[in-house]
């Protein structure tokens, strides 16, 4: 216990809190289905079934009643976070491997909910990203760029068999007009490597005047859900605000220093997992810092790391790596930054 008395508690059970967070994800998920196709639904279903199965398996192995632990909804949340993070048309086994790793190894082997050092969804994501870089970096283009979206049966065939019934692979179906399956952040990095300036890169079809097409809508939807979380007091404002502030400050600074090589603020904030991360992933109560000042430091640290990884790193999006690195720092943050003990002068 790091914080001091009086322990003012919100009278909410863990399961209720988890459920609120899951509900707050819904606007983002709807936006993602709208922009990136029905694959998202299938991935969600796969991930949730797999997460509940793994959770029950471990509880049975530990000779506990699985139904009590399944009801805390934490497996549901982990599954949903991972399912919206991976590319919507990934093969089924990718989701299964990621979710099993998250639940069994990252969460349960460390002692279950409340004992995990790392954010389970992000550790699962990093496992997949390191192991299967090609699959994990090929996102489908946004709806606006595609002549016709895949139907739900086509999406199902692609995910389960790897081909549609007509025998086309994902790449053949989606890159008709020569669109690559790169994410906007990826495209930006490739563009810079080809010594284009940032104003030339955002002339590409995948960028709008306000951020990357499709991604900006999804990110705004996650922002909406996140604001709902803060208003319903499910999370505190400290982590998202300090994260977004530090990321924005660094982006603006880099634009002053090197305007031709740096990502604009709208792209930085509205692409990749920025908003999902800010409100849903960083705020995981188990693996984040526990005091309010600590939370500010934690958020700012992740903002810095995301900026560094996106700018100089080998992987296009850095939220998952940044979160895991900051998770490691949490014990130190909690050790040095504590709230003043009630009734004592500093």
């Amino acid at each position: 216990m790091i914080s001091s008395s009086p322990y003012m508690r919100v009278q909410r059970k863990t399961s209720e809190l988890m459920l609120i967070v899951c509900c707050a994800l819904v606007p983002g998920i709807i936006a993602q289905i709208w922009q990136f196709g029905y694959g998202v639904i299938i991935q969600l279903a796969l991930a949730i079934v797999c997460a509940y199965f793994c959770e029950a398996l471990i509880q049975i192995l530990r000779r506990r009643n699985p139904f009590i632990y399944l009801k805390d909804n934490s497996a549901l949340l982990t599954a949903m976070l991972l399912a919206v993070s991976i590319p919507p048309y990934s093969p089924w086994w990718l989701t299964i491997i990621g979710v099993s790793f998250s639940i069994i190894i990252v969460k349960q082997l460390y002692g279950g909910l409340g004992h995990n050092l790392f954010n389970p969804a992000m550790a699962g994501y990093v496992l997949l990203l390191i192991s299967f870089p090609v699959l994990m970096t090929s996102w489908s283009p946004a709806a606006e760029l595609l002549p016709n979206q895949l139907s739900i049966t086509q999406a199902f065939d692609i995910i389960i068999y790897g081909f549609t019934q007509d025998g086309f692979s994902l790449r053949q179906v989606l890159s008709i007009d020569g669109f690559t399956l790169a994410t906007p952040l990826d495209a930006f990095k490739t563009g810079l490597d080809q010594s284009l300036t940032s104003s030339e890169i955002i002339q590409q079809a995948m960028f709008d005047s306000w951020g990357p097409k499709g991604w900006n809508i999804v990110n705004l939807a996650f922002l909406l859900g996140g604001l709902g979380l803060i208003l319903s007091k499910a999370i505190r404002w400290h982590i998202p605000v300090s994260f977004l502030l530090s990321l924005s400050t660094l982006t603006l600074l880099s634009q002053i220093i090197a305007p031709d090589q740096s990502v604009s603020l709208s792209i930085q904030l509205l692409s990749g997992a920025t908003m999902l991360g800010a409100f849903f992933i960083l705020t995981d109560p188990v693996s984040a810092a526990t005091s309010n000042k600590g939370r500010l430091v934690y958020g700012a640290l992740i903002g810095l790391l995301v900026f560094v990884i996106r700018t100089w790193g080998g992987y296009p999006d850095g939220v998952a790596f940044a979160v895991l690195l900051a998770n490691i720092c949490v014990p130190m943050i909690d050790y040095y930054i504590r709230d003043r003990v009630y009734g004592y002068q500093k």
Partner: peptide, 16 residues
């Protein structure tokens, strides 16, 4: 397979 569990041959795989 075209896609193998690359993590296993990298250092984290050794620890796991």
């Amino acid at each position: 397979s075209d896609h193998k569990l690359l993590l296993a041959v990298l250092p984290p795989g050794a620890f796991l």
